[in-house]
Write a protein that binds this DNA or RNA. Structure first.
Lengths: 225, 225
DNA sequence: ATTTTACTAATTGTCGACAATCTAGGTTAT
DNA sequence: ATAACCTAGATTGTCGACAATTAGTAAAAT
């Protein structure tokens, strides 16, 4: 429960932000019913702005709405995540191919420094690095920025599909994949530095496929338990 | 101005639908200010549901909102469309590759019949075939369905990015591209029938690149005028 | 003549109350 | 005992009114 409200706009924007955060972090359980009156009370606002926020979250696919039956937190089942990772592979693969042409040398240097920070964080804390999944610190988002494609940046970044953040948040606990992931990130950056878009795309696709494999196994274990 | 309201849900859903339609068809001009009170009056509802609809459209990228300054219809400039078509190429290329494996023979037959209908329509009307861009009739949407990827279907179909419909609606007047497009559609279907995902993806990517080239030229002409 | 500033009108943001709809529990009939 | 039905409670959907902010205009000062 963050005490401060990160957004400065209208109440609906604030509610949207706080709700998204609560859903992504799992504070609001998957499939849970979202009671308008209760949430409005908790956020200290009327139901109007809150309903606008729910409509916004519906567009982000973080909640599902049924007319006259209210809104529920989305449930990330196996099929949904599988679909999500397939889409990611296509989008981020493309981002890499274009970024290899569009990024400046300075941009690529920035990426290297970002990975240095990640490495330091891993050595220090041993694995639980969710902080690197946020905003400008995110490696994948920086590559989307490198593609100079605003639509892609929106899709992978701030607004659209926070589903990914939600998924990564749930799976950031298993530390055994952070090191190989970092290694793959480094390979991608080197491909970008050599301006080899084809290679960068292939490396990114494999990286995402590997992430999906890891998550898939984790789901299997959970279902077995 | 359609006299009937196509949706049956809440007033916000109806408003969302009607607004989207008006924006896509160009009845509401790009960049136009959207006055809440005026629209609510026109739709015969209060401002509450209308605000919810605007929040929804904001998520669809059909309107841009600035706090305390209202909502405006999005403007499709050259860069935005370029970005959109790059994303399309990646997503629909993937859809083809997966659909080549996932579609049933019956699905592919359906696609063939759909193209037969399109051909008949072209011969009869000579080109202005916007009806085929709607819903289940849409060739591209049917392929997204064939991928069995729900996220992709959402993105390319009903909800997300109606920007594409908006763009296609504007450019559906130029009839000279409908025949080569149909030819390319047929090639794609044959690739799917042979279960050649690689080929189907490549053909779809070229098809979309061709469409972008055509649209790009059209924009050049408009800017020259 | 131009810039600044106060004022007014219009528009957005918000709230509380009421109507419509759904849900759950108990009651009655078979 | 089971199933259909009805009623009471809770929840969503909607509206109208009020507050807050912005934009435009006209007057005043430099």
């Amino acid at each position: 429960m963050l005490p401060y409200t990160p957004e400065q706009g209208t109440l609906a924007d604030i509610a949207s932000h706080r709700l998204a955060q609560s859903i992504v972090t799992g504070e609001l359980v998957q499939g849970q019913k979202l009671n308008e009156a209760e949430l409005a009370e908790r956020f200290g606002m009327g139901r109007g702005p809150l309903r606008e926020a729910l409509r916004h979250l519906e567009g982000m696919r973080l909640v599902t709405r049924v007319p006259n039956a209210g809104a529920r937190v989305v449930v990330l089942d196996r099929k949904t995540l599988s679909d999500l990772y397939a889409v990611r592979e296509a989008l981020e693969g493309m981002a890499c191919r274009i970024a290899a042409v569009q990024m400046t040398d300075a941009d690529i240097d920035q990426l290297r420094k970002l990975l240095d920070r990640h490495e330091a964080q891993i050595k220090k804390e041993g694995g639980k690095v969710y902080a690197q999944n946020e905003g400008d610190l995110d490696f994948h988002y920086q590559i989307a920025r490198g593609s100079r494609n605003q639509m892609l940046m929106d899709m992978l970044g701030s607004e659209q599909y926070q589903l990914l953040r939600m998924c990564r948040y749930r799976t950031s606990r298993n530390a055994e994949r952070t090191r190989p992931a970092l290694q793959q990130h480094r390979q991608i950056v080197e491909a970008l530095a050599q301006r080899d878009g084809e290679l960068a795309e292939m490396l990114m696709r494999r990286h995402i496929q590997g992430a999906w494999l890891s998550i898939s196994e984790m789901i299997d274990k959970e279902e077995a338990a």
